[in-house]
Write a protein that binds this DNA or RNA. Structure first.
Lengths: 240, 240
DNA sequence: CGCAGCCTTGACAAATGTCAACAAACGTGG
DNA sequence: CCACGTTTGTTGACATTTGTCAAGGCTGCG
């Protein structure tokens, strides 16, 4: 269990957590209880946190950094999603006490809170406010995955890339220039492409006013890119 | 509102509903309240129940028959899932009071209960047992969609078909012979294929001991098909 | 009947995957 | 700081998969 933390002191992160939607409606008493069993730890990049198929011993909450959810089958691996502060992962597996459907690893140095799954389930049975908050969180996750499925089934790889760029641009305050948050290799996997195809797709997007060098992206002709991407709120709006 | 029902009498279906996991932990009083505003109606096949982008006025529960969830983008349509008795759809949109991400239509003659979304949200705020049950239901839905995403990203169309056949065989008691529950056109859409490709895929599967005529399927060499499909519990187990 | 929709088949086009080679970027240890 | 090896990214050539279009057969139904 070397991935278990040694520091149990929370200080200010305590408050950050308390302000999470997931914990806001919860009674102070129950929050205390969760925090008592919880661990806070900082992980270096590329650390495996959980593995597909394992039971989930802890609910994970990303406070800083970022975490990749990925899956494997038949000697292949695919990136499923990126988790950023401040949100949880493997919540569904935790509340169902079922095996994880995905693995998780840190992408960058990350601060992560681990709350023992039995504690979550216990408080979940006691605290209605918490139960309701879990519903909101799960509904959000569900809808995200549905949108992702529509992206996959409707769009070609170039369209997926174009829409990804538009979403990422929006997520980073909407400037014409921004930088990709991770490797192109990982991006390719996230978009269900091979790295080779991603390269070629970026090249094709030059005709639509997208310039790249390294991780730096510039959208020079917003309208052209949007005409290609045809983004839809029912697929691309993160909020929904 | 011509899709609104005229019969509000429930008789025995009342009990069926009460036995649903979603309603079991709920207080009798709150269950009554939900039922008072609820409608029960039988729809013919091919009736549109809800449309993508609309607000969800009702939580829907399929008591008999079957319902297709589908989505549209850019003049294309894709089948997302099939809902069978006894379960709900658009639960996530209902609890979030958000637009539906999918449309729904009956595949066969279907008996469906409609419960006004505001009632659901009101009782959800009152009844902890219900809130917890909603969590379980949503967690289940979430995990299903994740599995579907893995199916899409990892597998070729023939592998998807092979695994679909194995799952469908299991769902219908596991005999070597069974019948497809709907058109091949719809099946193609569900599996992210064109009808033409589905035809060809079925033909290729003959080499692996799959015989078809019309909707009738016979798996003659189970082992061969499984060797091709390489099913995984983390993708193909409906329970999980 | 005869029409309409579904299914199948063939020929072809487009998209995507694979393999190989090489260049660029990165990290590590000297 | 450099040299080195490893990884990532790019490019080209090619194979495979998937999509598209057109035609024809089959089936169910008025």
């Amino acid at each position: 269990m070397d991935r278990l933390p040694n520091s149990k002191h929370f200080d200010s992160t305590f408050k950050d957590l308390r302000e999470l939607e997931l914990f806001q409606a919860m009674s102070g008493e129950n929050f205390e209880r969760l925090m008592q069993g919880a661990y806070l730890q900082t992980f270096p990049p590329q650390v495996d946190l959980i593995a597909e198929g394992e039971r989930s011993d802890f609910l994970h909450i990303v406070l800083a950094g970022s975490v990749e959810l990925y899956a494997q089958w038949n000697n292949r691996e695919t990136s499923m999603a990126t988790v950023r502060p401040t949100s949880t992962f493997i919540l569904a597996a935790t509340v169902k006490d079922a095996p994880n459907l995905m693995s998780a690893r840190t992408l960058e140095k990350s601060r992560i809170v681990l709350i023992p799954s039995p504690d979550i389930r216990a408080v979940f049975d006691l605290d209605c406010g918490f139960a309701r908050a879990v519903v909101q969180e799960l509904a959000q996750c569900y809808r995200s995955v549905i949108k992702n499925t529509k992206d996959l089934k409707f769009r070609t790889s170039i369209e997926r890339l174009a829409n990804y760029l538009l979403r990422e641009q929006k997520r980073q305050n909407g400037q014409a220039q921004f930088t990709l948050p991770f490797d192109k290799k990982r991006l390719a996997s996230l978009l269900a492409m091979r790295p080779e195809n991603l390269s070629r797709a970026f090249r094709q997007l030059q005709d639509f006013g997208v310039q790249t060098q390294g991780a730096r992206v510039e959208i020079q002709h917003q309208a052209d890119l949007e005409a290609l991407a045809k983004p839809s709120p029912l697929i691309d709006d993160p909020a929904s």
